[in-house]
């Protein structure tokens, strides 16, 4: 167990390091220097380069960059002069987090219960309908869903507000738009693993013992059937974070995703790098946590790495 833990965390840290190295290399490959456009020449340029550490060898710059990262310092924005990238990220994280948590819970509740309901259905017609619905949910791109919901319920019917995240009603459309794909995926995962577990001997045994069907569902089946869902939580966080870029732009939510797109269009390189590292790290850490939780719940897994 300890060996697996160390291995998994080691790989996670290595991935983080590679991500940082890639982003750093990218900044160096980028055409032009941050000081180029400001009409600075000669001695002042040298002074400026010294101040920002740009005259040192690249490898040393990389070490300084890493050291700063460990202190939570992502540098200063190119375009918003004097603002720390970390501060910008912190000021924008809240809406993304709120919407993310709402969608996450929605996905788990709806996805898991729909999956169980489907595993228990015996009607072939309902199953066929269900499968088509899932295929649809998985293959329609999220920005199209978001846009359709926006046009129909926000603009035409005016049932829900579409700007910002001020009231609970504001969460409805973006959460559905963002959640459709993960809900379909979670439902499918739950359904297949639930059906698998239902056929196991220990479930038959529990039934033979005369346990109530609620006890069997929760204590025996769900406990085992939810494992794939736990594994999927890591990728789901990744999906929600990258998805937030689209959703926040469409619904004008002032979160990380919107800031990211703005930074790209403004060529604010340090901000783009900062957000890239931020989003990347969260995703890597979440994947790690979901793997560790899984190995904790199911000791068989540790042998696979």
């Amino acid at each position: 167990m300890v060996k697996y833990l160390i291995k998994r965390i080691g790989i996670g840290l290595l991935t983080l390091f590679v991500l940082v190295a890639i982003t750093f290399t990218m900044t160096k490959l980028m055409p032009g220097s941050p000081l180029q456009s400001k009409n600075i020449t000669g001695e002042i340029l040298e002074k400026m380069e010294e101040k920002y550490g740009l005259n040192k060898p690249v490898l040393e710059q990389f070490f300084i960059y890493c050291k700063n990262l460990l202190h939570g310092d992502l540098g200063t924005s190119y375009k918003k002069v004097g603002t720390e990238v970390t501060d910008i990220i912190l000021s924008r994280i809240q809406p993304t987090l709120r919407l993310g948590i709402v969608t996450f819970l929605l996905t788990l509740v709806v996805g898991v219960s729909a999956g169980i309901a489907m595993a228990k259905t015996k009607s072939n017609f309902v199953r066929g309908l269900w499968l088509s619905g899932l295929t649809l949910g998985v293959s329609v791109p999220n920005f199209i869903v978001a846009l359709l919901l926006l046009i129909i319920f926000g603009v035409q019917l005016r049932l829900f507000p579409i700007l910002g995240l001020d009231t609970p009603m504001h969460y409805v459309l973006p959460a559905i738009a963002q959640g459709l794909y993960p809900i379909s995926a979670v439902a499918r995962l739950t359904q297949t693993s639930y059906e698998d577990v239902m056929r196991q001997d220990y479930v038959t045994m529990a039934r033979a013992k005369g346990l109530s069907s609620t006890a069997i569902t929760f204590r025996h089946i769900l406990k085992n059937a939810l494992l794939p869902v736990i594994t999927y939580m890591g990728p789901m966080v990744a999906f929600l974070l990258t998805g937030s870029v689209v959703i926040e732009n469409l619904y004008t939510i002032p979160g990380i995703g919107k800031e990211f797109v703005n930074a790209i269009s403004n060529h604010d390189y340090t901000l783009v790098m900062g957000i890239t590292i931020f989003i990347g790290s969260i995703i890597i850490i979440c994947n790690m946590i979901s793997d560790l939780v899984c190995s904790f719940v199911d000791p068989r897994i540790k042998n696979t790495l």
């Binding site: 790989i11 991935t15 991500l19 990218m26 990744a238 990258t242 060529h267």
Partner: peptide, 21 residues
């Protein structure tokens, strides 16, 4: 393992970085 590492960074971030360059 190399593949695992490349895979754990979301595709969107690669694309954005490539486009910046």
């Amino acid at each position: 393992r190399i593949v695992d590492i490349i895979y754990s960074v979301p595709a969107m971030l690669y694309i954005v970085l490539i486009m910046l360059i």
